[in-house]
Design a protein around this nucleic acid. Sequence first.
DNA 1: TATGATACAGTCCAGACTGTATGTAAATGA
DNA 2: TCATTTACATACAGTCTGGACTGTATCATA
Lengths: 234, 234
Amino acid sequence: MPRIAPAMKTAITEKPRRRTQEERSEAMRKRLLAATLESLAEDGYAGSTLSSIVRRAGVSRGAQVHHYPSKQALLLDASEDLLKRTYRRLGTLLLSISEEDNRLQALVDACWEQMFATPLYRAYCELVAASQRDEELAQALGAMLRRVMALFEPAANYYFETSGTKLRPADMFLQLSCLLSGLGLQATLLSKPVIRSQLDGWVRQASPILRARKGITSPPPRPAAWDRVLETAG
Amino acid sequence: MPRIAPAMKTAITEKPRRRTQEERSEAMRKRLLAATLESLAEDGYAGSTLSSIVRRAGVSRGAQVHHYPSKQALLLDASEDLLKRTYRRLGTLLLSISEEDNRLQALVDACWEQMFATPLYRAYCELVAASQRDEELAQALGAMLRRVMALFEPAANYYFETSGTKLRPADMFLQLSCLLSGLGLQATLLSKPVIRSQLDGWVRQASPILRARKGITSPPPRPAAWDRVLETAG
DNA sequence: TATGATACAGTCCAGACTGTATGTAAATGA
DNA sequence: TCATTTACATACAGTCTGGACTGTATCATA
């Protein structure tokens, strides 16, 4: 049916203010990605249907299909977004650590609280599980994992040093990340004290061989990859 | 339409041998459960539809609905079955360890190979992820985890002793299990050398404080819960 | 061996999901 | 200001899922 009276929106919205196409696209994609990660965390991979995602984002089905031709495409981009968020979170975390007294304990606690006991990590678990049957997703997540590890490694070696072992700080923290992954996966099945004791246990066990370098109060040098991600993150 | 010529099956099957009702039910349930766990590992939670499960089991839709009124019921029973399988696997594993020279390394390797780098663990991951949105499943898995831990704890304290730390062997092995969980979750995303180095790293790090008790060659005393499960396992 | 209970098979249906096709509003640029 | 492209909205088609339902074979028992 042609020609329906328009000019109602302008009456409702305060300042409809013209947005450039690119702004509109970016904002829409942002909403979709955020909703996708939310949905992955809350509803799981299976429960994250396109309908539920667009409902969560408060947009129409058409918007999604316009920006992402397939569900696969949306999830792949959401994985990328997950990487960026993780990067940023890790960055602020490492910065805050530099001021702490007991850096090891603070780092472990902060990693747990802010990275593994979070909805974002739940979303990651869902994606990892799904990547078992999705080669493309596996590729993306694998690359993501390597990049985060590559970011974390110099920071670990910058803040800490090992003694009496062949392992470098980065190796120790890789172990820590595996431990936290396992804890995070089963966090809802384990009691709080068990988790607490595991975190403390690791710190107690690692502290004799893992010392914070003295006189290091400034943040570690950011690798180039970091800034590249941060700037494209919007 | 009534009365179709029967007596064809007897011609085909060698010995149709009367099976008791209970035998039939048990056999059918066994097939369904095995197919469910297989499907969880291979197709994931979302991909494990009833149709795919019964196809995998080679039975009809009706058989499934007869034994399990809902999909939920089937999955809950499959979780139970997963527990029993894990129990048994852990049992044989612990037995085999008793003969090894370097028990710690052997135990870690065996746990990894036979418990975490397996389809059964993949199925577990799928169930854990799903349990995030299924209170009943979470209950079942939580109970299962506690029972396995309760089984493992005395065995760990029986084979090993700690020195120079407040942690008991069981605490160390709980840490190990979390580590292996994390590794197992991301096994397909990590390279073999990384996994290998993590396993070896843990052993190297734990061996100074975790010693195998001398003169222990017999298997640990089985807790009552163990036999209870083993006998009902069929 | 007759009768009721149990085990299993096959089909149907309402709902949900993804992808597509088509229509409308907003921005761009000449 | 108008044509064109881009952004978004809605309706629909085809497929699949889980549960309900009906029918048949097998077993237990009196």
